[in-house]
Simulated scan of single mutants.
Amino acid sequence: MEYSLEIDGTPETVPGGTGILLLHPSTGETDRMDTDFLKTDTDRFFVVSTRTTAREVKQKLEYYDVDESRAEILDTLSIERGYSRRTSDHVHYVAAPDDVDGIVEQVRRFLERHDGKLRISFDSVTELAYYAGEEDALEATERLLTLLAEHDAIGLFHLSEEVHDADVVDDFRSLFDGIVDLDEDGNVTATF
C-alpha cells in the first residue's frame, strides 16, 4: 500500500511500513507538519501524546481542520497529573508517560482494530525519553516501527535535536526510513 505525503521535500508517496523521524528545534512549529501528515490519504489515525493532554490534541486537530472522526488519541499525561478524564472509543489512557509497554500495546490494539490506510503520530519521542529514559524510548520506537511494518501503516515520530546528545540522535536516525529536518526558521530538508 502506498501513502501520499504532504510534507515539503519528501517523496510524493511512501510504502506502508515507513517510519519518518521529524527532527526539530525544541521551539519548532511542528503542529502544522503533524496535522498535514495526519489528514492526507488516511482512513484512521492514532496520536500518541506524551507532550500534551487529549483535550489539547483535540484542539490542535480542530484548529488545523483535521477530520476528528478518523482520530484516536492516547493521552499519557492526564492520569499521572490527576486531571479528569473520560475514556471513549476515541480517547485512551495509560497510567503515566513512562509506561512504555502500555503505549506500545495501545498502538498495537489500534492497528489490529482498523483496516485501510493507518497513520501514527508520536508526539514526542523526546518527552518519552525524558520520562522513561533514552534507552527505553529507543527500544519503544523500534517496537512501534515493527508494528507499522506488520500492519502496513506509516508513522511520524517527533524528536527534538537540541535536547539529546548527537550520538543519541544518530541512534534514532538509524531506525528510520525517512528523516525530515525542520530548522529554527521553518525550513524543511528531507532524506529518504
Rank of each mutant, 00 (worst) to 15 (best):
R109F: 09
E135P: 01
D152C: 08
Q59T: 03
L148C: 12
D36L: 14
E112Q: 10
L21I: 02
G133E: 02
R108M: 14
R109N: 14
L111E: 04
T146W: 02
P15D: 10
Q106W: 01
V57P: 04
T27M: 04
D31E: 14
E135F: 12
L23Q: 06
L77T: 05
G102Q: 10
F45A: 08
D43N: 09
L138G: 00
G82P: 11
L111D: 14
T191P: 06
H90M: 03
L138Y: 01
D170G: 11
E127N: 07
T76P: 03
P97M: 11
V104L: 15
V104Q: 14
Y130N: 00
R70L: 08
E112A: 09
K39N: 10
I103P: 11
T191I: 14
H92T: 15
D65Y: 14
D183Y: 06
F110K: 02
G133K: 05
R44A: 02
G178F: 07
S49D: 09
K39V: 05
G116Q: 11
A96C: 02
M33R: 08
K39G: 15
T76G: 01
K60A: 06
F157I: 04
Y131F: 15
T141R: 01
L23E: 06
A71M: 14
H90R: 15
S69K: 08
D89R: 12
I79T: 14
V188D: 04
F37E: 08
L159T: 02
D36Q: 13
E139H: 00
V107E: 10
R70C: 09
V66G: 05
L21G: 01
L5A: 04
D136T: 00
T189F: 09
D101I: 01
V91D: 13
G16Q: 05
E68G: 09
S69D: 12
K117Y: 12
F110Y: 07
T53N: 10
S69V: 04
R173V: 02
T126H: 02
G28M: 13
G155R: 10
A129T: 00
A132K: 00
P25R: 07
V168M: 05
D75W: 15
G116K: 15
E2S: 05
E184I: 09
H90Y: 03
E68V: 10
D65I: 13
D34E: 07
K58Q: 15
D170L: 15
T87K: 08
E161G: 04
E139Y: 00
R51V: 15
K117E: 08
L61I: 12
R86Q: 11
V48L: 09
V66K: 07
P15N: 13
A166I: 10
S69Q: 12
T50Y: 04
A137I: 00
E142W: 05
T126P: 09
F176C: 07
F176H: 06
L182C: 08
V180T: 02
